[in-house]
Design a protein around this nucleic acid. Structure first.
Lengths: 162, 162
DNA sequence: TATTCATTGTTACCTGTACTCACAATGAAC
DNA sequence: GTTCATTGTGAGTACAGGTAACAATGAATA
């Protein structure tokens, strides 16, 4: 009964850990009463890493979701005044997303929330172990060098965000 | 702009990786056309680790979700004939969940699916690195020794499953 | 120039997962 | 026998994401 499938077990642990990360993150967000969901928070943080306001499509790629998903997230953030849709004069199809001042303020609190959630999650690990984990995750997240799967690549992986 | 918040970054990577795990897992499940969702698959696998049929509440605890969530999962699995609800004669409140033969059969395919998904995800890692990752995740998943968070512990963490 | 094709975002809808709240049935304790 | 805890579930909600169809725009081409 002790599984002869270390990789599968590993994936299971990953998923399990993940559910915990979600719960903890959600709780920390709620505690701060920012009116922000985890996914919105991610979009906001991602937004902060652009020099100039990105297009919806850029965000979709970076977040590794379909463009439609970004629409919903931006809708929510815009309704709360954290973000502004700005039409691009050069190409009237594109919409650029700008952080508002309020959004920037929220971001500061968000970083604190994330830090708190992270330290709660990583509590059992020491300094050295966190470094190790960071490196391993980096290797994994940066994506497989060659695409190991042939059909149905729904999403193309983008760059990393903090 | 290069984040002075390694832990936060680590959490972010974790979440990102997670979304990928979900996508890949889902794809592998769909490919096999078992009519099983990821969460159902997890329940099924968890079920296999009990010597005798567990109660709904046991499953909830092990899966780290509220009991109500288990009801939905079992509904789905029962509709597909993978599990059976068996009333407990000793205590008429409890319902025990049994794997059917078909469920056991599905489980075999599930393991293959999980293995495939896992190896796809872990492709960039070598043998030694997987071991490392496994150890780190174990430490994390086994839960913090002391509860680092005071209020609002929505869920009580249970044991591990494979 | 007029037609065709690709890009960009969105409207409308569906699925999966998990949560809360309320409740009925049952068992246990006083 | 009344009260209280346990157990599972109905009803409703929220969030995250996906597909399909489409309108507006821009680019390419006959």
């Amino acid at each position: 009964m002790t599984a002869p499938d270390p990789d599968g077990l590993l994936a299971e642990q990953l998923l399990r850990l993940t559910r915990r990360v979600h719960r903890i993150q959600k709780r920390h967000l709620e505690r701060r009463e920012l009116g922000i969901t985890p996914a919105q928070s991610r979009l906001l943080r991602t937004l902060a890493h652009y020099g100039s306001p990105p297009r919806m499509a850029d965000l979709a790629e970076r977040l590794e979701v379909v463009p439609r998903a970004v629409t919903t997230l931006v809708d929510g953030l815009e309704a709360h005044g954290k973000v502004r849709r700005v039409p691009d004069p050069a190409n009237r199809r594109v919409i650029r997303i700008e952080l508002t001042d309020e959004g920037r303020e929220t971001l500061r609190e968000l970083r604190a929330a994330r830090r708190a959630a992270a330290s709660e999650i990583l509590a059992p690990l020491g300094e050295r172990e966190r470094e190790q984990l960071g490196e391993l995750l980096n290797t994994l997240v940066d994506g497989p060098p060659g695409p190991p799967c042939e059909e149905g690549t729904t999403q193309r992986p983008g760059g990393r965000d903090s």
